[in-house]
């Protein structure tokens, strides 16, 4: 901060020590995206988009990410409620367990899923023997892998929203005769709806980009388990330009969805 130059009235001077790293950080995040745009084969883009494999992978990615998000909502919101509202022994351990998939390398997650849900796994053997269901190397397996990796994002976001919500509204509901389940559905959920939406968006974005757990647990079968990130990785080995095109699509779709949701829900007061 220079002392000699008189600061302009009403403006906050930004210290260089903060400004320089901030600009570098922005460049670091934005340059690879710019590189993707610069190197894209714009002239052959329409033909490449029309290739059958591209749309199939995109559709599979969107479907599995959405189903995985729905699964996470179904299981994750009650889990978040439990963590936020119920005192029980070992709650800290449970919270730590929930965050494990965040720090676990996704490939390791995939291996762990195989050990449990694989044909020889504890749950997998029972599922196969009793219902004839095999999860690994199936579309359901993709959903499972994505949900495993993405659910912590939802749980953490919703738990935070629940902790921030004013529990006195729930007390008010009880004084009006509402039982706990009714209070949850009619008061708590609407109050934390913005938090749930934000968590679901994070969860969906993470599921859409999932690679490691998916390829380990579900494999890489076009039309069945080959999602966009897997298709990108595969294309990278044979056709660099195809990989760029696939990446661009993934980027466009996710940015478009996030932007649409942001305008509609997340920024609401």
């Amino acid at each position: 901060m220079s002392v000699s130059a008189a600061p302009r009235r009403g403006t906050l001077r930004v210290p260089l020590g903060l400004l320089v790293p901030a600009v570098l950080g922005l460049a670091f995040l934005a340059l690879p995206l710019a590189g993707l745009l610069l190197r894209a084969p714009w002239s052959t883009l329409p033909q490449r988009l029309a290739q059958p494999g591209v749309l199939t992978a995109l559709r599979l990615s969107l479907q599995t990410a959405t189903i995985a998000t729905a699964l996470c909502l179904l299981l994750g919101v009650p889990l978040a409620w439990l963590l936020a509202r119920v005192e029980f022994p070992g709650r800290r351990v449970v919270r730590a367990l929930v965050t494990v998939p965040l720090v676990l390398p996704p490939v390791v997650g995939g291996v762990a899923l195989l050990l449990v849900f694989g044909r020889r796994g504890i749950v997998g053997r029972w599922l196969a023997g009793t219902f004839g269901i095999t999860l690994p190397f199936s579309t359901a397996g993709v959903v499972l892998a994505e949900a495993f990796v993405a659910m912590p994002f939802l749980v953490i976001a919703v738990e935070g929203a629940l902790r921030g919500a004013d529990t006195r509204y729930e007390e008010a509901a009880a004084t009006l005769g509402a039982r706990r389940w009714t209070t949850f559905t009619h008061v708590t959920l609407p109050l934390v709806a913005p938090g749930i939406t934000a968590g679901a968006v994070l969860c969906w974005a993470r599921a859409l980009g999932e690679f490691g757990a998916t390829i380990t647990f579900a494999g890489n079968f076009p039309g069945r388990t080959q999602t966009m990130p897997l298709a990108v990785y595969l294309a990278l080995e044979t056709d660099m330009k195809a990989a760029i095109v696939l990446s661009l699509i993934l980027l466009t779709v996710s940015v478009a969805v996030l932007a649409a949701l942001r305008d509609r829900w997340i920024t609401s007061p």
């Binding site: 007390e171 004084t175 005769g177 509402a178």
Partner: peptide, 9 residues
């Protein structure tokens, strides 16, 4: 419990 009491607050 609260929800079964004849109260208004």
């Amino acid at each position: 419990p609260t929800e079964h009491r004849s109260i208004g607050v």
